[in-house]
Design a protein around this nucleic acid. Structure first.
Lengths: 205, 205, 205, 205
DNA sequence: TATGAATGAGGGTTCATTCAT
DNA sequence: TATGAATGAACCCTCATTCAT
């Protein structure tokens, strides 16, 4: 029983830490609170993480791992056309990430990038680059097949990802204040609608 | 001259504070550093701001004031069609805000919204609501004139603003690490290109 | 074998503790390290010693026991004159104590006397007093027989013991830094040479 | 008034720290206590010393400076014979050092040498080497003039210094427990008596 | 008997805030 | 008005001690 607990501890601690880091930021998060939220004493944290900074790194690195595989797998398995694929990817990302606690990581990363350049670098290389790769692949397929216009692919990737990012970020920032906020589904549908229309090749006329 | 200095002090202090708050976040910013950057001693800060939190509020409130007027003025003065107006607005926003230090405020606000709900509320009501109003106005004009499709206006507003926000945010977060980043102009042009195409009424065929 | 181990444990633990206490001092020594050096887990320490302080006391008390008997035995068995006896005692002390780990105890005791007055008291009464007794006996014999001058015996005892103590102390303090240090044998020989000459009765002229 | 205080602070803090470091050792000394003894709050310590270790180094380095000059000056100014000079030096050292708080530094250095090898090195080179130089000079003078026997000078230096060191050490270690202790003057006189007799050239017969 | 995960009081250090100058 | 020395509450981290296994 003790053994089972020991193995689960790091994940429990990282989950608690993620919540608080996202909510308050790194500097404003007290390890006391992290420990309390995970139901352990302060000292226990140090059995699993060398210090606050290492905990932070672990939270980021562990948090993004599950997301990476799924996205790339989706790309290889899907065999519809580029329009449908792009639509599915944007929708599923929200289901897989946006509705979980992991959605807080982008906000956290944005907030703390300046204080942890190496972690930001790591995040960029392991998440952003791969995420952008997924979108790039779809855009290139669509352009190659004539479905999409020949837009500037690299710029378009960022433009496409921006509303997805903002949706996740919003939830953990201004979304928590009393700001009349929309339904994520409507937001996503509108994003995809505008995007697909925007990408549509002129020949459709 | 002393008098002149005295009147300039608050602005100098807020400018210094804005830079550091944006770079490091509220909690990780030391008042010592703010004072040093403004070229005064730590105690002087307290002659102008009751405490760190009041300084933060002042930074936000002063920072957004200049932006507000300009945008709304643009709307009333412009008499081209909706397409052109939307394009001009998105481009000019970057010129007026994106290239100055004020562009850091969105990032700062996102990072600290959870710790300062009242400030977030204030920011939402005085910046977001008004900014959204500008976009809404343009969209409604375009839809009314038949230039734009009848999209979900409220959702579209957020989708349209997202890439603009991300452009500003990026500069103060991951943009400072070694991430192969694009040119803002290309990014904006692509955003506007996709957007206008996406909004374009089907009847153009 | 398990039984044998169990009986050897306290001694092993005390040996490990002595080394570390001498090297780092009581407060700076971690029980983790003591346990690791003895090849057991931290908890095991508490099966044999109630707490860190008791371990310290045991280390001192056990450490000095073997030294006590030997010295006094030497005194009774030796039947040469006072000069030879004094010489033998000082040399043998170094052989029996100075070259073993026990030589660290004087340094440890000096360092921690202020923090453990009762232990210091115990050490004084059981080691210093008896050690001084040995020297006193020799001096008195020598003075009675006319070999030695009639020096102030109590003061002379301390003066005689000082170089012996310093030789042991040095090994565990400054001796471990890069300080050009002499050979203990030469040091001892010079000490004894000076001492015997210094004690020599004037009549020898 | 504030200014005057500011300049006196470091010395006050080091004096307080020296007392406690000598009494309890480095690790067992709380900065709270140091501050309290100096009559300031804990934070004030950090206005003058970067951390506990730097405070320690400052205590050692500042503590020994005054002693160095005096000893060497004495040597050059004295013009009696070697016997008298040696006697005066040993006596005066006690007056200048032994009766002040500085006498605790040898004990402190011995206790902490293992934990601060660089400080130990510094102490050896700046105190021990110079102190030994003083004694060496006197011995060589005495041997050259025929007053002293041709003893092993380097070994003799350490033998001669040992009782002096022990006198100082004792005061801050076992001397504080209930150990029947002698009068320093008698101790010193006996030391010098034995020593000068021990060094005396045989030819005087 | 032995382990090592867990605890929590305690100490070093930081920094927002105050106030005498 | 401006300074910067001083304060002390708060936080990170350590480590002696406990206890379930």
């Amino acid at each position: 029983m003790r053994q089972r607990r020991k193995e689960a501890r790091p994940a429990e601690l990282m989950a608690a830490a993620l919540d608080l880091f996202v909510e308050r930021g790194f500097a404003a998060t007290k390890l006391d609170d992290v420990a309390a939220r995970a139901g352990v004493s302060k000292g226990t944290l140090y059995l699993y993480f060398a210090n606050k900074e290492e905990l932070f790194k672990a939270v980021i690195q562990q948090g993004i791992l599950p997301v990476l595989a799924q996205g790339e797998e989706m790309l290889t398995q899907f065999d519809g056309d580029a329009r449908a694929l792009l639509q599915v990817m944007l929708m599923r990302w929200w289901e897989l990430v946006g509705t979980t606690h992991l959605a807080g990581i982008p906000k956290l990363m944005i907030s703390e990038a300046g204080n942890f350049p190496e972690v930001a670098q790591y995040y960029y290389e392991n998440v952003m680059v791969r995420g952008r790769g997924l979108i790039r692949e779809v855009l290139q397929r669509g352009i190659a097949s004539g479905q999409f216009r020949a837009v500037d692919v690299e710029a378009a990737i960022d433009v496409i990802l921006a509303p997805q990012m903002m949706l996740a970020i919003w939830r953990y920032s201004l979304g928590s204040c009393d700001c009349g906020k929309q339904d994520p589904q409507t937001y996503l549908r509108t994003h995809i609608d505008l995007l697909l229309n925007g990408l549509m090749a002129a020949e459709k006329k």
